[in-house]
């Protein structure tokens, strides 16, 4: 029981990730009407469209006027993640998170080196390059190669040769760079980091309780966001934080908790 409590958010995230995939899979295989489509574009209860905003932006960059369903879907996602969830798609929904976390887990167990040094800003470059290439190649460029889309589409509709891409990402994360894909290259994650700039759900830190044990830095997939730990109280303001809440679980000092942004108290 204690163990479950210790991993409560991780368990809930896995349940949500697998549950959503299951609902999508059932939508395709058994005709369930809860969620149809995949994470690029979906239909909730056959009435509410949901679309990946970055995919829609890419389609618009090709010069095609997107139909209203996809536009409404993207707007709903924009509002949801932009106002409430922030970058939670990455840690709570995206199936690539499980691949990435598995690679990190094995990497830490085997104490492998991570010799490659990459800037975490590369993903924003890829994000923009994807839009530019969509324009010049007249096809949604990131969608055409996206390992994330390949993974969820593969799980829901059949993988084909897509395993090769997923395996490549897994090995890259495992042997070359911890969190290499999700934390450095993925431009879908970058798009959600931009969208969730002013989102409401945030991790809050209480520096008075903090004993500087450093456990949060150990588990954090985006440890650059933990800039206020043991320095000053407040929210983890960077939108690169995925609200995965691993830090909350591992903190024995109760110095971190899931909280809401307080619009009244803004840091100077």
């Amino acid at each position: 029981m204690k163990l479950i409590f210790r991993y409560r958010y991780l368990l809930f995230r896995r349940l949500l990730q697998i549950g959503l995939l299951l609902l999508f899979f059932g939508g395709n295989a058994f005709g369930w009407n809860v969620l149809k489509g995949n994470f690029s574009s979906a239909m909730l209860f056959s009435t509410i469209p949901l679309s990946d905003p970055y995919a829609v932006v890419q389609i618009m960059a090709t010069g095609f006027i997107v139909a209203t369903d996809a536009l409404i879907g993207a707007a709903i996602i924009l509002v949801l993640y932009g106002l409430v969830f922030g970058r939670m798609f990455c840690a709570w929904v995206c199936p690539m998170n499980m691949i990435s976390d598995t690679a990190i887990f094995i990497n830490k167990k085997l104490q492998l080196n991570n010799n490659l040094i990459l800037s975490r800003k590369i993903r924003y470059g890829i994000l923009i390059l994807g839009i530019i290439l969509s324009f010049f190649l007249a096809t949604p460029a990131f969608e055409a190669i996206s390992p994330v889309s390949t993974l969820h589409r593969g799980i829901i509709f059949g993988m084909g040769g897509g395993w090769a891409i997923i395996a490549a990402i897994f090995l890259f994360d495992l042997a070359l760079l911890r969190n290499g894909w999700c934390g450095h290259l993925c431009s879908i994650g970058a798009s959600y980091a931009l969208i969730g700039k002013f989102a409401f759900i945030k991790i809050r830190h209480d520096s008075e309780k903090c004993t500087d044990c450093g456990r949060c830095f150990e588990v954090c997939p985006e440890s650059q966001v933990l800039d206020i730990i043991n320095i000053r109280p407040g929210i983890i303001s960077s939108s690169e934080c995925t609200n995965c809440s691993r830090c909350v679980e591992v903190c024995d000092d109760n110095a971190l908790k899931i909280s809401l942004r307080n619009p009244m108290i803004r840091k100077k």
Partner: peptide, 13 residues
């Protein structure tokens, strides 16, 4: 078509 397809598979379903 190449520009517009979202690759969501809803037609397939």
């Amino acid at each position: 078509f190449q520009k517009a397809c979202m690759k969501c598979g809803q037609c397939v379903e």
